[in-house]
């Protein structure tokens, strides 16, 4: 007997997400984001999602597409372009409810959820506007001699986590090959169900043939389903499989500046399925080279 395969299609993953859910998205800024799954949410009928993310274009797109009614974040950036234009627009237009935490608090909130405790104490946030602007945050007093008052960071409990790995096997073991795991294991453990998109599903034995043991970030107990999405983190960084597509990201950020340009960008790249997106990206690349 062997463990059953968890391989799914993009549509099957989408079938597991419901309107109103809290959805955590892995990666960091414009790095190793599960963009194929984000694009699938954009095409879907889903609404009223609470997105929890170290935000990049994932959050910008979901806000612009009217999919997110609430966002929990610590920053929003495209990394090589400092600000995420669609996110900035949504903030200024008050297009959703926003909860902005310190980035260490954010990690602590994921850790609390992963450890199934309601909060974890930490120093970050004390004295800052974070505590003033989020009325759900409370402090807690140490029961020990120091009696210090610390921030009680509440658990960031997720219904669903979406993360992207360089490689995985069909059982749900996930591997990152770049320099930084980000927080993808915590996202998976903070969620009731975790779905991994990956550049490549390979045989289990292949995972450690050419990569270190420590690159196996996700074990299968953390993972509900796996979906192969080649170039699925595009246009974010997925090193060493591919770097950020800077030309494309620039085109995205430029188009986001006016409704007309954004409509044209959306029509060209985001109006079809994932295969249509990848074909449009290939055409964009060929144009840029010509």
């Amino acid at each position: 007997m062997r463990a059953p395969s968890k391989e799914l299609t993009i549509d099957e993953v989408l079938g597991r997400i419901e309107s109103g859910m809290t959805v955590g998205i892995g990666g960091w800024g414009s790095r190793r984001k599960p963009m194929a799954l984000v694009r699938a949410i954009l095409r879907s009928d889903l609404t009223d999602l609470h997105i929890v993310s170290y935000a990049g274009p994932d959050v910008g797109l979901l806000l612009a597409g009217g999919k997110a009614s609430k966002v929990t974040y610590a920053f929003a950036t495209l990394d090589s372009i400092p600000l995420e234009p669609l996110f900035s627009q949504a903030r200024v237009e008050r297009a959703a409810e926003f909860r902005e935490w310190d980035e260490g608090m954010f990690q602590t909130g994921l850790r609390a959820a992963a450890q199934r405790v309601s909060f974890l104490p930490m120093r970050a946030g004390l004295g800052s506007a974070v505590l003033e602007n989020d009325p759900d945050l409370h402090t807690v007093r140490s029961p020990y001699d120091d009696q210090e008052e610390l921030v009680a960071v509440p658990a960031l409990n997720l219904d669903v986590a979406l993360v992207h790995m360089n490689r995985a096997d069909e059982l749900g073991n996930g591997q990152y090959l770049g320099p930084d795991p980000y927080f993808d294991d915590l996202f998976c453990m903070a969620a009731r169900e975790a779905y991994v998109s990956t550049e490549q599903i390979i045989d289990t034995a292949g995972l450690t043939v050419d990569a270190s043991l420590q690159s196996l970030l996700l074990n299968r107990t953390m993972v509900t389903g796996v979906v192969e999405t080649p170039n699925g983190a595009h246009f974010t960084d997925c090193t060493p499989t591919y770097g950020r597509d800077e030309k494309f990201q620039k085109a995205y950020a430029t188009a986001a500046k006016t409704p007309e340009d954004w409509a044209a960008f959306h029509e060209r790249f985001l109006s079809g399925d994932e295969a249509a997106y990848q074909a449009a990206v290939t055409a964009f690349r060929e144009e840029a080279q010509a």
């Binding site: 935000a55 600000l83 900035s88 310190d102 120093r123 970050a124």
Partner: peptide
């Protein structure tokens, strides 16, 4: 409802 969104607090509070 800010007039201009910047990066976010990032790690500054911590």
């Amino acid at each position: 409802q800010p007039t201009r969104q910047l990066l976010g607090v990032r790690g500054a509070p911590g």
